[in-house]
Design a protein around this nucleic acid. Structure first.
Lengths: 119, 119
DNA sequence: TCAATTAGTATACTTTTGGTAACCTACAAA
DNA sequence: TTTGTAGGTTACCAAAAGTATACTAATTGA
């Protein structure tokens, strides 16, 4: 992302290294920046959590949301879904190593939000 | 966010410390996680940039988007708008100390995206 | 004169997202 | 039998987000 703007002899300007495609920051944001995504990852940090327990912890999010986000995270291999019991169905969600690799950023963000009193 | 779920003697479950309101991670995300917001902040890291130069660097974003995001950031005191010239109009945008305080998180995110080859 | 620059605004439009609520199978307790 | 648990799915609607295009006014350079 060393982009800057250059002016030629005729005064015309052109961007050098423009972000025509979403650059790394954008791409990253689209993964951990979805609504509730960061919170979900963070709530899994201490180990496997069952679906409904997660839903209870994230009181503000609907099951649909949580389900959607978990599927995205599973597709990205950040989370693993494990059926721990048939009859009655029991499922847990757990972070992969890749999933855990995002925790530092999320925790820094949490600290930053707290420090700067973001409402 | 030390939320967890407890089961009472009758098997009923209740979430302790549930995130009824968006917790710190959510709140932070809503500020630096908007589309293009992170990229804009990052492009301002080396000093003041003019509006159209920013638009050129962020080739994928429309002026309306950039304008909107800059206004949000200005309202949050993360960016300062400075008119450096009337006739012809010239304006620059610059990070405040608060704005700069987000750079570390954004750079970590950039590195993380690159390392994990996020598409 | 024509084209391009400055920093936006205005308008219209499409797409995506988010949220509610109902419904599903299967099991268990009162 | 009714209620509750589990882990979702489905349909629908409203609102937000994003895109596209045109337009402003003043200035400069060819």
């Amino acid at each position: 992302m060393g982009s800057h703007v250059e002016t030629d002899t005729k005064g015309r300007k052109t961007a050098i290294n423009a972000c025509l495609e979403p650059c790394a920051i954008e791409r990253g944001m689209r993964i951990i920046g979805g609504k509730w995504t960061g919170s979900i990852i963070f709530h899994l940090k201490d180990g496997p959590v069952r679906f409904n327990d997660l839903a209870r912890m994230l009181g503000g999010a609907s099951k649909k949301m949580i389900d959607q986000r978990l599927k995205e995270l599973e597709a990205r291999q950040m989370v693993v879904r494990k059926v721990i019991n048939d009859r009655p169905v029991a499922v847990t969600y757990e972070l992969t190593d890749f999933g855990r690799s995002a925790l530092k950023i999320l925790d820094d963000l949490r600290v930053w939000s707290d420090e700067h009193d973001i409402k």
